[in-house]
C-alpha cells in the first residue's frame, strides 16, 4: 500500500495553499512595521505589560508610531493600561497615540476567554485556538507604518513559540524581571529558550526595584547571557524613566 507522500494527486482542499496564504497575509500586514520586539519574562507578576505600555507611550511621545499586540489572550491588560475606550475597535488608539490589539476587544468587561466547542477535554484543541487567534491578530490588523510593534507576551513560553512559528523568524526579545532570585531563575529559563530559538536578546529591564524585592536578578542574567541591563525601574517611575529606556530600543 502506498504511503502519504507517495500520493501526489492535486488536493482540492489545497490545505498547503491555504496555510501559505495565511503566512502571506501576516507578511503583508507587517510589511510596514520597521521593528518587532517581544517583551517576555517567562514569569508572571513582574510587570511585562506595565513596561510594554509605558515604553510604547514613551516612543509615541518621541513621535515614533508604535503598536502593541497584547498576546496575553487570557489576561489582557494592555487596553486598560493604554486607557483604550471600551467600544474601540482594533487597532484601537490609546494614550499618546499608541495603537493596540487585544483579546479584550472581543470580550465583555470581565469575561474570561472561552471558546465555543466541546467542553470535555478541551485541552485537546484550546491551545490551537489560541494560536489561531494570535495568527489572526497578526494577519488581520491594518497597522500601517509603525516604527516598532511590541508583543506583550504572557507568562510561560508557549505564546513565544507560537509567535516564532507564525512569524517565521524569532523576534528580538526584551526581558523583564524583578530583583528576586526566584524571578531570576524563571526568567533564565525563558531567556535560554529564546536563545535556543535564535532570538536576539536586546536587554534586561529590572522592575520594582528599591523596596521589598531584594536580589541581583538583572545583573546575574546580564552576566550569564551577555545582555545589557537597560533599565532599573523604581516603584514610582517618572516619564523620564521610560523615555530613557525607550531611547535604548
Amino acid at each position: 500500500m502506498r504511503t502519504y507522500h507517495q500520493l501526489t494527486d492535486p488536493d482540492r482542499s489545497g490545505l498547503p495553499g491555504q496555510i501559505g496564504a495565511q503566512r502571506q497575509r501576516v507578511a503583508e500586514r507587517l510589511a510596514g512595521v520597521r521593528r518587532i520586539v517581544a517583551v517576555m519574562s517567562g514569569k508572571g507578576g513582574v510587570g511585562k505589560s506595565y513596561v510594554t505600555a509605558n515604553v510604547a507611550r514613551a516612543l509615541a511621545r518621541a513621535h515614533k508610531p508604535v503598536g502593541v499586540l497584547d498576546a496575553d489572550l487570557n489576561g489582557p491588560t494592555i487596553p486598560g493600561l493604554l486607557q483604550v475606550p471600551q467600544t474601540a475597535q482594533p487597532p484601537a488608539i490609546g494614550l499618546d497615540g499608541v495603537k493596540c490589539i487585544s483579546m479584550a476587544h472581543f470580550l465583555d468587561q470581565g469575561a474570561p476567554l472561552a471558546f465555543k466547542g466541546p467542553v470535555a477535554e478541551s485541552f485537546v484543541w484550546r491551545g490551537a485556538m489560541e494560536a489561531a487567534a494570535l495568527r489572526e491578530f497578526l494577519g488581520d490588523v491594518e497597522w500601517g507604518k509603525l516604527d516598532l510593534l511590541l508583543f506583550d507576551l504572557p507568562p510561560g513560553m508557549q505564546r513565544y513559540i507560537e509567535l516564532c512559528d507564525i512569524l517565521g523568524n524569532p523576534p528580538p526579545v526584551l526581558t523583564v524581571t524583578i530583583p528576586t532570585p526566584e524571578s531570576r531563575d524563571a526568567v533564565r529559563r525563558a531567556m535560554r529558550a529564546a536563545v535556543e530559538r535564535g532570538s536576539a536578546l536586546l536587554g534586561i529591564v529590572e522592575n520594582m526595584v528599591g523596596r521589598e524585592f531584594v536580589g541581583t536578578a538583572a545583573d546575574d542574567l546580564a552576566q550569564e547571557f551577555g545582555a545589557p541591563v537597560l533599565a532599573r525601574i523604581p516603584w514610582h517611575p517618572t516619564p523620564d524613566t521610560w523615555n530613557q529606556l525607550a531611547a535604548q530600543l
Binding site: 482540492r12 482542499s13 491555504q18 472581543f106 465583555d108 470581565g110 476567554l113 472561552a114 485556538m129 487567534a133
Partner: peptide
C-alpha cells in the same frame, strides 16, 4: 483556519475569533 474542500471566499478579518470566542454576553463589548 482552513476549509476542507477549499475556500470559496477569502477569509474574513478575525474570522476564527469572531466565530469561536464566547464574548461573555450582555456586556458593553
Amino acid at each position: 483556519g482552513v476549509e476542507i474542500g477549499g475556500r470559496t471566499v477569502p477569509a474574513e478579518p478575525f474570522e476564527m475569533v469572531r466565530a469561536n470566542v464566547v464574548t461573555g454576553g450582555g456586556g458593553p463589548r
